[in-house]
Nucleic acid binder design. Structure first.
Lengths: 329, 329
DNA sequence: GTGAAAGCGCTAACAT
DNA sequence: ATGTTAGCGCTTTCAC
């Protein structure tokens, strides 16, 4: 049986409320008593029961994180970031993996929302309406997505795409291809828009090659269409897709970057390990997790702040071996 | 404000205790009243406050999972398995990433232990003494590790190594090398032992090449020592190490499997994507997570069961392109 | 089969 | 500055 606040109070010769105060508002209690309480706490190894505290304060000290797929290194990194930052604020993190299932997402969120002070939704696939409904009665922070009135942290996708296009154009490429991710993905939409603008600015062509899963398999599936498009360089939804693409191209005997240059997005650890090593737009992943927690914590302290609580992170082009000069026609 | 049990009681025209019973012991309440309660619950969207319930039942309905590094695909998979199984039992999962820091591990565990019904410790780096101390006042299940009196799920490392060695010997290899993982890793010790036995059985040689981090970098670092050992085939602590090794070998112009065959352990997604695709011992990862949850749940239902609560999972050799016949001397 | 009352461990008024 | 009281939302005796 773990020690309760009464045990501590008895041992220190004070009342439970004094113990409570000594712990949560130390400056409101006499230094001498505070010391006695501290000693008792120490001796008993007392740790307040957070559930009981939450019952009365309305705050649990827990947050929830919902991700589409933990096996995707991108989300694993974001999770690490969330985790690390939360720990520093003595906050525990519930993690829920929806397995890319939109239906599960809504249900999971509802189940979790009762036990946490707030929720971080990472790349939610749900529609805006659902999201807003959730944000109605829960504190929510979005990662990789915006929705009216909900705070969140996103990447500047447009800018990232501009960097990728500038790089390829400088290498002499005039016909680019874009392999889109999941249709419902906010990122895929914004990357598409950024790309559109960037190619317009540079006066080069862009073929859009459908929507594919954000996976290695997605990339394998996309490869042949990319080749058929006649592009000399391709930008993919993310690194996983790019690596799948690389595999299929290799199997078909198409040389990268000789015949085709490939650019990914994310810079997951695997990208350095690919052969050829993947040129990519690095997204600060743990950073996003960290900031999401900070946004959420701020929201909790000041529930109806009208301050704009939006953050934007920038990608950084990492040039490796999968991009090279366009073959002269 | 979310609905409370009283709201439901009032709406259904019964007492709170009846609502409580209708929800947790349906057969003890009249079918008619049960229906009325159900309707009220539905109408109000009532969800019991688990913290309040936990306060009295002593069970939170939450479990904790501690892993060394979520960015390692192995642990990401185990986490997914835990997650999926827990959800089916309506149990939420706190995830804590220790960042491979032994010191953090003990602290994290203590912090978490108060808010959960039990803890799953995945590949704990802590010593046996610490582990037993923790298991003293918390329900603990170990993954990838055994300790006296603590239930757990492990892989049959010996058997996995036997498969790997048999494969290599069949290919004509007589001089093998082993790249060990972290010194404190239970798995690395047992794989070492299994290897020792296997090579003895087959009458072949084994060079042990130090201890390295369980990472890509670890593999890069190990490569030159492996080559210097004169072995024609190498087995590494895990796939990440094998892939790092592959990279360094490629850089040095050493052909795989022509000059050196390479076998990993885990079968993470990345292994298929390596070039050459990695021969490896597949470990059922999500399975381990699933079973860990089941072990824990069983432990909770029957706190001092004397039943042996140990599980063992078996690896499966997956032969891909990184292993081939030994070069004839 | 159902209700009334007590209390889980804690904090927040309210007294003192 | 400290103690007393009440009560967070729920379950669980114990009556009826």
């Amino acid at each position: 049986m773990p020690a309760t606040i009464r045990d501590v109070a008895r041992l220190a010769g004070v009342s439970p409320s004094t113990v409570s105060r000594a712990l949560s508002m130390p400056e409101m209690v006499n230094a001498a008593t505070r010391a006695r309480v501290a000693a008792a706490v120490e001796q008993l190894g007392y740790q307040p029961n957070r559930a009981a505290r939450g019952l009365i304060t309305g705050r649990t000290g827990n947050i929830g994180l919902v991700v589409p797929d933990l096996a995707n290194p991108f989300f694993a990194s974001v999770t690490k970031g969330v985790q690390a930052r939360a720990r520093r604020s003595d906050t525990a993190v519930f993690v829920a993996d929806t397995d890319e299932d939109v239906t599960a997402e809504v249900g999971l969120v509802r189940a979790l929302s009762k036990q946490v002070d707030g929720l971080i939704l990472c790349s939610p696939r749900s529609g805006d309406a659902d999201l807003c409904a959730i944000a109605q009665d829960t504190n929510v922070v979005l990662v990789n997505r915006t929705a009216a009135g909900i705070p969140g942290i996103t990447y500047d996708n447009e800018e990232g795409m501009r960097q990728a296009v500038a790089h390829l154009v400088a290498l002499g490429h005039r016909r680019l291809a874009w392999v889109g991710g999941p249709v419902t993905s906010w990122s895929t939409q914004h990357r598409g828009i950024g790309l559109e603008n960037a190619v317009a600015d540079h006066g080069v062509e862009l073929s859009r090659v459908g929507h594919f899963g954000p996976t290695y398999e997605g990339g394998m599936a996309a490869a042949d269409q990319v080749v058929a498009s006649g592009a000399t360089a391709v930008i993919t939804y993310n690194d996983l897709v790019a690596i799948g693409l690389l595999a299929r191209l290799h199997a078909r005997g198409i040389s990268v970057p000789g015949d085709l240059s490939v650019v990914g997005v994310d810079d997951i650890a695997m990208s350095r390990m690919a052969r050829p090593a993947l040129t990519t737009v690095r997204l600060p992943k743990q950073e996003a997790g960290r900031i999401a927690v900070e946004l959420l914590l701020a929201l909790l302290d000041d529930p109806d702040s009208t301050v704009d609580t939006r953050g934007t992170l920038h990608g950084e082009l990492i040039v490796r071996d999968s991009t090279g000069p366009a073959a002269s026609p």
